[in-house]
């Protein structure tokens, strides 16, 4: 028992490893924020492409479907390897000389955009067709109806599931440690190997937990508000 406490919860090791792990965790935060912004924008674009009407858009729709299928099905760690080690090996100008951090952002964005596309798509499909019809019959074009009527309603509806995916993204920023990004897990690992003590991992875990709890609570809060509103509409 004493052994466990010493190896995992040593107050001394906690204090000593904390600054380095915190430095690493700031990279996790950066990865997270940049990837989230990219994911929000790209996923919406792909979701809209998937919903395009008409036969002319078939190739675009197919491309969007292939993309989401591939990247939802591939483990993030594989994508990280492929991007982080694969792209530099290709010797393509502008693509093979990026920093590991950038490769990390690309891997996270590729995978999470695929998830979030599906979330947006569900939101867009949940807007009743009569809304689009009402917009079109006022003379709004397809794009105007999407922009002003369908997407605003869709996005409002999917905010809770979006936030859930972001909790996942926050945690998965730890995975890009495998391509040599000096984020918190890597810092923790270094400390652990140098000191034969695992407390540094606990430190990293605490950071992640402290970050995700508020977001999870906020998501619950939004869901509760929505439920209350929907009940009020029924009466």
């Amino acid at each position: 028992m004493h052994e466990v406490l010493q190896k995992f919860f040593s107050p001394h090791a906690f204090r000593v490893s904390l600054p380095d792990v915190w430095t690493g965790f700031q990279l996790n935060l950066k990865l997270m924020v940049i990837a989230e912004v990219l994911v929000l924008v790209l996923a919406l674009a792909i979701a809209v492409v998937r919903g395009l009407p008409g036969r002319g858009a078939t190739p675009l729709r197919a491309l969007a479907i292939v993309y989401t299928d591939v990247f939802r099905g591939t483990p993030l760690i594989l994508v990280a390897f492929l991007v982080g080690f694969g792209l530099p090996g290709l010797n393509i100008k502008g693509l093979s000389t990026l920093s590991n951090f950038t490769y990390g952002v690309i891997a996270l964005t590729l995978v999470y955009t695929a998830y979030v596309t599906e979330v947006y798509r569900a939101g867009i499909e949940s807007v009743h067709p009569s809304q689009r019809m009402a917009a079109r019959s006022l003379g709004l074009s397809y794009w105007q109806a999407m922009r002003y009527v369908v997407i605003p309603q869709a996005v409002r509806r999917v905010i809770p599931p979006l936030l859930n995916d972001f909790v996942g993204l926050q945690k998965d920023t730890a995975l890009v440690t495998v391509i040599g990004v000096a984020e918190s897990v890597q810092q923790a690992q270094q400390f652990s190997q140098n000191n034969f003590n695992f407390t540094s991992y606990v430190v990293a875990a605490v950071f992640f937990i402290l970050l995700t709890i508020p977001l999870a609570r906020f998501t619950d809060h939004l869901i509760r508000i929505r439920e209350r509103r929907e009940r009020a509409q029924l009466t």
Binding site: A134, S137, L138, Y148, Q153
Partner: peptide, 13 residues
């Protein structure tokens, strides 16, 4: 041409 529907179809947002 203006059209009005049975279900109003106002934009709720």
């Amino acid at each position: 041409i203006g059209i009005v529907f049975q279900a109003y179809n106002l934009f709720p947002h």
